[in-house]
Simulated assay, not measured.
Amino acid sequence: MAARSYGQYCGVTTAVELIGERWALLIVRDLLVGPRRYTDLKQGLPRIPTNILSTRLKELQEGGVVRRVPLANCGLVYELTPYGRELEPIVLALGQWGFARMGDPEPDDIVTADSLTMALRTAFRPDAAASLPPADYELRLADIVLRVQVDGTRLRIVQLAPPRLIGGAPPAGEPGLVFAAGPGIRRVISGELTPAEAIDREVLVVEAGDATLLERFAEVFRIDSAGIPA
């Protein structure tokens, strides 16, 4: 259990004691993408001191949120328990709520493959996707490459780079659209920029495929300026 006790008998208090310590929710965020080795978690959270990462993982295990299990070809990995996975809608809702106050990144702010994956899952609108044909994207942001497949209400995201030993197999075939972006993709997801405006301002760069699919991307991945799904 977390070292801090608030001394109150309340479900919110218990939740905060379990996952409210610094870095705990970001560990949960990354494990919602998939199982991770200790080194994967450290690479995804480069500013976390190693002793704090070890402590948070121990606390999350003691709280029944995380467990350590063997995985073929990877050794021991950390993964969320079924109880821990119940945090997914809460983490996605927090991402939507925080989106409105993100602003522009600071010079030292980073985007990781796991944080970008969860950002797309946060912005995904299955109701909008349900009425559209399937789409297959390759999104590149700095050294991150994600394959993003939308088929009705189903979303699949595979991290192609940086390379990982853990994760889904790369999809077969070529994506319908390959495009590069920077942190300014937030302005497309918020609706502040249309895809055409984003291309004109070089926020997005189409590298291959059908550029018209960007309009579908912007429709399916959207959070309005209030931080609530459009």
Score class of each variant (00 low, 15 high):
63 G>M: 10
71 L>W: 05
162 P>E: 00
221 F>V: 10
106 E>G: 12
138 E>I: 00
149 Q>K: 12
93 A>Q: 09
50 T>E: 13
127 D>G: 08
112 T>V: 07
61 Q>P: 10
161 A>F: 06
52 I>H: 13
159 Q>P: 07
122 T>S: 07
79 E>R: 00
29 R>N: 10
178 V>M: 06
35 P>H: 04
5 S>M: 09
6 Y>R: 14
142 A>H: 15
39 T>S: 15
1 M>P: 06
89 P>M: 01
167 G>R: 07
54 S>R: 15
35 P>L: 06
93 A>F: 05
41 L>N: 02
56 R>P: 09
50 T>S: 13
175 P>C: 10
174 E>I: 04
104 D>W: 11
32 L>D: 03
3 A>N: 14
181 A>R: 08
197 E>A: 15
72 A>E: 13
228 I>R: 15
190 S>A: 15
118 M>Y: 02
128 A>S: 12
128 A>L: 09
118 M>S: 00
161 A>N: 11
168 G>H: 05
191 G>P: 05
83 Y>D: 11
62 E>M: 10
124 F>H: 03
206 V>H: 00
114 D>P: 03
183 P>K: 02
186 R>Q: 09
89 P>Q: 04
63 G>K: 08
33 V>N: 07
121 R>K: 15
60 L>N: 04
41 L>V: 07
138 E>M: 05
97 W>H: 14
10 C>T: 07
207 E>G: 05
226 A>R: 13
114 D>V: 03
5 S>E: 12
211 A>T: 11
91 V>C: 08
52 I>T: 15
133 P>L: 09
149 Q>D: 02
6 Y>P: 06
41 L>K: 02
154 R>K: 15
36 R>M: 13
190 S>E: 14
122 T>L: 04
139 L>G: 00
222 R>P: 07
150 V>R: 02
129 A>I: 06
83 Y>R: 11
75 G>S: 05
198 A>N: 02
199 I>K: 09
36 R>T: 04
141 L>T: 12
116 L>Q: 05
201 R>H: 09
22 R>A: 05
178 V>T: 14
109 D>C: 02
228 I>L: 14
188 V>S: 04
105 P>L: 10
195 P>L: 04
174 E>F: 04
6 Y>T: 13
102 M>Q: 14
190 S>Y: 10
95 G>Q: 00
177 L>S: 04
144 I>W: 12
174 E>R: 13
68 R>A: 03
142 A>W: 14
45 L>T: 08
10 C>R: 09
108 D>G: 10
13 T>N: 11
136 D>T: 02
197 E>I: 11
137 Y>A: 11
172 A>G: 14
32 L>V: 08
28 V>R: 00
42 K>G: 01
11 G>Q: 12
217 F>S: 02
183 P>V: 08
157 I>S: 10
15 A>M: 15
204 L>D: 00
46 P>G: 03
121 R>N: 08
168 G>Q: 10
222 R>C: 12
230 A>L: 08
